[in-house]
Structure formats: structure tokens, C-alpha cells
Design a protein around this nucleic acid. Structure first.
Lengths: 194, 194, 194, 194
DNA sequence: AATGAATGAGCATTCATTCAT
DNA sequence: GATGAATGAATGCTCATTCAT
């Protein structure tokens, strides 16, 4: 098993601080020192893991959303990719939701200021801007704030799914319709159900 | 300064792991050992802090929302109290958003399974249920999931406010209208702007 | 046993790098962490030890040499105090001879640039200058270089004494006459012995 | 670049402990393991380096001093060769002055008890003995002690030169006259200046 | 001969926790 | 109740050394 996978496993289960480099090395079936051949220190290992996953996810999203013009379709695709991704990378999800800035100073700021994080945010904000242009989303909302809200809602739903659906009989991807409904239309009953 | 306030100050600024018991004792103007007279260990101190604040917030919310019957009004009041509370307890906010389960396993589960947390969730879920009865909120949404989404959206907005409004010229409470709009009506343009 | 004495013992026997903080703690009959209550880190402990000893020696030398006016007498007293001091602090001598700059960069420069080291050097240079004024020492010699040579000769003799006189039947102090003779008159036979 | 030269470079700049075998291998443009084909371990590499240089220097000194009979001339030649040698091998000088026994026990004693070191000392002591026979040096001085003092004085001067003459506009060899003056005649003003 | 990835013992340092006063 | 010096287990990280290729 490669080191990043081992790190994902351990960080995901124990969190950054409780995870030890020895845990990770053991999980990767390496000696302690070997981990340091590939990653300068614990923080860098963590950072690299976040970057790798973020890069993968971003690549997927960019590729898939580029194919369509319609903002609502883009949002839907983005959401589906994200849900798929987190269904496959549940260990990583625990890490990723900290991205919002709740974890530790030095690492978080390193992540937040990384080119990739900015690109990720820019990509979602871009979709939001397009949605505004296409009158799908209200104009009086800052695109990056819109992106934050969209992410929050989806994270909340993913979290809920993780808790209630431990056996995972239900695919996370199926929640995309619901999330999009909520984001666009809110919690109020739609007209036809009134 | 009492120990819980000191803990709030230090945990809020450094996070659970970087905060040391000595930091907290120093901040409280007590000797290290004294902290242990009141709290069995670090985890318990953290847990007690979260509980105390949650109790305060919950009491406020219960008291204020009990006075009205209308679900939308209840939601508005809940939101305003929460925003006020976090504006006054910004140190605590950083702690509270971790409540979602992204921090370290043992404490998080202790918090999540605490009677108070359940009561808090129940209180919000109850409001959701009422909102469904009053046709304010769509029926096909699990009340606790609705509560999660509502909390996520407000947390996202608070976070945004914290970042962009460091000088705090704008009161957080003023965001309640916007949050409620988003939660109920979603991001789609309202009819009149169509 | 206090920590500085333990450090002197261990550093003197093992040298800076081979000495471990655990060695020192054990020697001082403390737990590892206790050493860190008093000294920030290993380097600081080492530095503090050197400073303490240097301060003691310098105080002795200043006090005793202040009492006389004659440069040759001053040199003799300086030498006797130094020899006495190193006879009593043999562990420390191994450390002190590194003072010349042969040890490790960060520590050495910290020592070399310390106020105390400068004062020590200034004190000896001052005596040299006086010796030049009193025609005891040739004028075409930089005082600090003279000090360096004087120190070198005495260090060489101390080292020799340490090697050949392990049983220490001979007092080191008795070498002062010889060292002074060599420094002032050189190795050439004196007139009367020609 | 051969391994010993690389070792000289690295040891001279970083000192024994801070120098790593990887540093040395990199400098020698070899893989880490290759160094171990030629040298059993780090200590042996260090030791071999010291021996090689000492052998070179000793060979030079022996060859050049054998040509003359006069003790003073021998001392002068010895000194000039040594100064030349260290001017060419400044990295090595930092290593060599530790030879005095201030570094780490195991290696130092290995060096001190090596046949070569003994031969080196014997060679200088022999010159001292001859100097005594020729009445150049006082009889009441142990030859090996005399050698130690002579070496100390020259080391002090070289050290001084290294510090003050970083730009190296002044050749070190030119200091030989001064060193010999000091060693033989001491610091006292010469008769003509009285 | 040469490689360099892998090893793992070893060390500096931290910090939650205890307990004699 | 209060203290704060002392503890020592735990952890990140280094680096000399090995060995399969």
C-alpha cells in the first residue's frame, strides 16, 4: 500500500493530531524513516494528501462540467462527481470537510492559500456566476458565498448519509437531485405540492 | 477569570490539540494543578465547555421560541439568537463548528451522544416538524436532516462573515433575513425578479 | 545534584553530541522533562553551563588581579587562578578548550558573541596592553593575539598535565611559573643557564 | 572527486556530527552505499581522513627537515611546511585542531593511539631533543611538552589568521618567523628594543 | 563495483497528569 | 482549596548502516 493511501486511512480515522507517523508507516507496511523519504514532515504529508485528492476531484469536475453549457446541468454534474468521489473516499471526507478552516492554523492556511484550493474555489464560483447569468441563481449573492452555501448543504447531506446509512445500501449519488432542489428552491414546498 | 472562560479563550484560539492545560491555567490565573480540581482531564474540560455553552444557547432559544406559535417566526428567532450568541462568543464558534464530527473521535462522539446535544437537535427538529405541519417546509425532508441543512447554511454564512468582516462593522444578526431566505427559498431568483 | 553540575559531568565526559538529555537528567536524578523546566533546550543548557563557569572564573580573575599593579604579577595571578579553576573543574576543561571555535557553529558563535566571552577576552587583552606599557611584552604584538598565544600555551600545558598526571600527584598550579617563563622568555635557554 | 576529499570538505565545514554520510556521498558523487565499500563506518572514514592528511604532512616534514642539521632551521622548515599545508587544506585544519582531544572520546583516542600520531609526535619531539642538544631550547623541558607548546602556539596563530584574514591577502607562511620568535624568545621585548 | 531504497534504533522535546506541601 | 515542581510516556524526526538488485 502506498504511503498516501495509508495516510488517508489513518488521518481519516484518527484525525491529524492523533494520527502518528508510526501509525501511517505501519499501515503502509514501511519503517518509520521510509515515510520521511517521500514526505518532509507530517504536515507536508497531510498537505500532499489533501492536494492529491483535491486535484483528482477537481480534474473530474472540470472535465465533466466542461462538456455542458447549462448552469443547472453543470451544478448537477459537479454534485454527482463530488458525491461519487466522497462515497469512494470516505476516509478522506472527514479530512476534506475541515477545509473550511476549522482545523489547525499552519496547515489550514497552507491549504487555503494553495493554488489548487484557489482553483477549486474559482471553478465553483465560476459555475455560480454562470448560474446567475442564466437567471438560475439570484443576482444579489456573492458567487463565492453561493459556492460556500452550496458546499455546506452538500456536506450536511453527506454527513447525514454517513451517519444514517452506515450499511450503505443507498448510493450517495442519488442525493444529488435532493441537494440541488434544496439549494435552488429552498426548503419551502414547491408550488405543485402546495 | 473562571476556568471555562479561560478554556474558551485558549481552545478558540489554538484549537484543542495545540491548547495546553498550562495555557488554560495561566489564562485563568490559576496554577496548573488547580484546573484538575475542577475538571478530571483535558477532554472533560473541553466537553464541559461545549456543554456549558450549548446549554446557554439552548436555554435562550427555548425561552425565546416558546413565546411564538408561527414556525417561520420560530426559525427567525432561533437564527437571531444563534447569530447573536456567536457574535458574542466568537472564540467558541471555532470550537462549535467542529461539533459536526470532524475533530477527534473520542470527544466528538462524547459530545454527539450527550443528552444536551440530543436535546438541542430535538429542539431544532421539533421546529422543523412544526414548519412542515404549517406547510412552511416541504414534507419530504427528514426533520433532523432539515435541521442539519439549516445549521450548515448558517454556519457557512457565519464563517464567511468572520472572514470578510474582521473589523466587524456589520452585525452578524443582520444576516438572519438572508439565511432564512436561502433556507426557505433557495438560491433561485424570487418571482418578482424573474 | 543540580542540573548544571550534572551537565558538566556528562558533557565533559561524552562531549556535546554524544551527551543526551536523558543522560544529564539521570545524572541529576531528575526525570527527562524536569531538565526542560530549567533550560529551554540542549543548546541553551550547554551555553548556560559555559557561561556560568566563565562567569565564575572571570570574577575570580578580576578580583584577584585588581589588587596588583604590576603586569607580570597580574599574569601570574591570572594563570594561577585559571590553573586552580581547571584543576577543580576538569570536566569543564574539555568543554572550555573548545571555546576557541572548534566545536559546532550555532553554539560556538552564541558563546563567542556573548557579552561574557567578550568581557573575558577584553580582560586578558587589557592585561596584555598593560604588559606592553610596562615593557614586559613586545609592543609589536596585537594584545588579543598575545592573549590567544598565552591561552594556547597554558592550555597545552594543562592538556599535558591531564595526560601525564592522571593520578594528580602534582598540583597544576605549580606549573604557572613554567608557563609564564615560556610565554615571556620563550623556549630558548635563559642567559644564566647558557 | 574521491571520497576522502569529499569527506574533508564536508567534515571541515559541518564538523563530525553534523556531517552525514549522505552529505559526503553526494559530495563525492557516489551513492550512499558506495562509501561503505571503502570505509567500514563513519568513524573509520573520519579516522582514515585524518591519517591520510597526517601521513602527507608528516612525509613532507620528514623529507624537508632531513636535509638540514641545524635545529633552528629544522623548526623553521617544519613550521613552513605546516603553514603551507594548512593554507592549502583549510577544511582539514578545523578537523586537525580537534585532534588535541576535545572532540569525541572513541575517535580521538583512536587517533591519539595510532602509530602515525605517535610517529608525528616522535618526529617533532626528536627535533626538540636536537634543539636541546644544540642549546637552542632549554634543557628543563620535556621534549613532547615542548612539541605540544610549539604546536599550540602555531595553532593559535593559524586560528587568528583564519579569522582575521578571511580574504587571505596575507600568506600564512609569512607568519613562520613570528611564531618561531615567540616560541624561542617569548613575548618579552628583544634586547635591542629594551 | 555500485546503487539507493529501506531500515529502525535513538534522541530532543512536549505536555497531560500527579502529589507533596 | 490551591500550588507548581516533577514526572515520564509519547512522538516527530534523523541518519548510520544494510542489502537486494
Amino acid at each position: 500500500m502506498d504511503i498516501l493511501s495509508a495516510a488517508e486511512h489513518v488521518f481519516g480515522r484518527k484525525g491529524y493530531y492523533k494520527a502518528t507517523m508510526q501509525d501511517i508507516a505501519r499501515q503502509a507496511q514501511y519503517a518509520t524513516g521510509t515515510v520521511y523519504l517521500y514526505f518532509k514532515d507530517k504536515e507536508t504529508l497531510y498537505f500532499s494528501l489533501v492536494e492529491e485528492k483535491m486535484r483528482d476531484l477537481l480534474a473530474l469536475i472540470k472535465e465533466r462540467t466542461a462538456a455542458v453549457r447549462d448552469a443547472q446541468e453543470k451544478l448537477k454534474i459537479y454534485l454527482e462527481e463530488k458525491l461519487d468521489f466522497f462515497e469512494k473516499n470516505q476516509d478522506f471526507f472527514r479530512i476534506f470537510i475541515l477545509e473550511n478552516g476549522a482545523a489547525q492554523a499552519s496547515i489550514d492556511s497552507r491549504i487555503a492559500t494553495s493554488a489548487l484550493a484557489k482553483e477549486y474555489l474559482a471553478c465553483i464560483s465560476e459555475i455560480m456566476r454562470l448560474a446567475q447569468k442564466q437567471k438560475l441563481v439570484r443576482a444579489d449573492m456573492d458567487p463565492s458565498q453561493g459556492a460556500g452555501i452550496f458546499r455546506s448543504i452538500s456536506n450536511a447531506v453527506i454527513m447525514d448519509w454517513l451517519k444514517k446509512n452506515m450499511q450503505q445500501t443507498l448510493s450517495l449519488r442519488q442525493m444529488s437531485r435532493f441537494i440541488l432542489d434544496i439549494f435552488l428552491g429552498g426548503a419551502r414546498p414547491s408550488d405543485e405540492t402546495k
